[in-house]
């Protein structure tokens, strides 16, 4: 549970940093009327705050899945999974998608509709290609005798890449809505808020995927061993 405890600790630090600016030590019965020292609610766009809270939930979900991996590693029958090559191709594609959405966002901020649309399309395609690569990886694993129930490493790979893929699919729904706003004739700045949320979501899922990959491929096992040593 070390990973998720670290995650919860991080959330707690963020929460307390925010709370510390909200005047929690004030005596509210002494103050009537205006309170101007405290930032008023709604200082940030609601969509961005909503996404932030949602990413905390998604982060918690994958931190827990990671914790389960680490706990499971402690048992005798664990060995690191041999990753099929296509996984690395997929990872590169997801990184590309993340980059494309970022440049689409930057182009939209500049007001460059054509560049924005081109980068946006490339990002969407790269994302679809990433999902295809993940499915290929599943097939390759099943062919080489590392099917879903074959060994714990493979089971976790299927589980985690599946959960991650579902989150990407959910992101694609949001992306499709942004595509509507980026459509022909519309000023690209209208799409900026939506694009921004998508880009952040993509970066986040890329980070999550890299972390999970590190864990499953065994890079992180040294770190995990250290965590276990501390905990037990």
């Amino acid at each position: 549970m070390s990973i998720v405890l670290g995650f919860v600790a991080l959330m707690a630090v963020i929460a307390f940093a925010w709370l510390s600016r909200q005047g929690l030590a004030d005596k509210p019965w002494l103050e009537t009327g205006a309170v101007t020292r405290i930032p008023s609610p709604g200082g940030r766009p609601t969509g961005r705050v909503g996404l932030g809270v949602f990413l905390a939930v998604v982060g918690g979900l994958f931190a827990l899945a990671g914790s389960a991996v680490v706990m499971r590693m402690g048992y005798a029958d664990w060995f690191a999974l041999r990753m099929p090559g296509v996984v690395w191709l997929g990872t590169a594609l997801l990184a590309l998608a993340s980059l494309c959405l970022q440049s689409a966002l930057m182009a939209a901020r500049r007001g460059d509709a054509r560049a924005s649309r081109a980068a946006f399309g490339a990002g969407a395609l790269a994302t679809l290609a990433f999902l295809a690569a993940q499915i290929l990886a599943w097939l390759r694993l099943a062919e080489t005798g590392q099917g879903l129930a074959a060994n714990p490493g493979a089971s976790f790979f299927f589980l985690i890449s599946g959960l991650h893929g579902l989150h990407i699919l959910g992101g694609l729904v949001a992306l499709a809505r942004v595509a509507g706003r980026l459509g022909h004739g519309a000023p690209p700045r209208r799409a900026v808020p939506g694009l921004e949320l998508c880009a952040v979501y993509w970066h986040f899922l890329l980070l999550v995927w890299l972390a999970m990959l590190a864990l499953l491929s065994g890079w992180a096992s040294d770190v995990a061993a250290l965590c276990r040593a501390i905990l037990t």
Binding site: L19, Q22, G23, L24, D26, P28, G33, A34, V35, I38, S40, P41, G42, R44, T46, V49, G50, V53, F54, V57
Partner: peptide
């Protein structure tokens, strides 16, 4: 999770004027 996002973000974002946390 869908509901929870609403409850949390509404408290964070949609408090009316003068409604500090305390």
């Amino acid at each position: 999770t869908m509901g929870g996002l609403n409850y949390a973000v509404t408290v964070l974002q949609a408090r009316t004027r003068g409604m500090t946390l305390m």
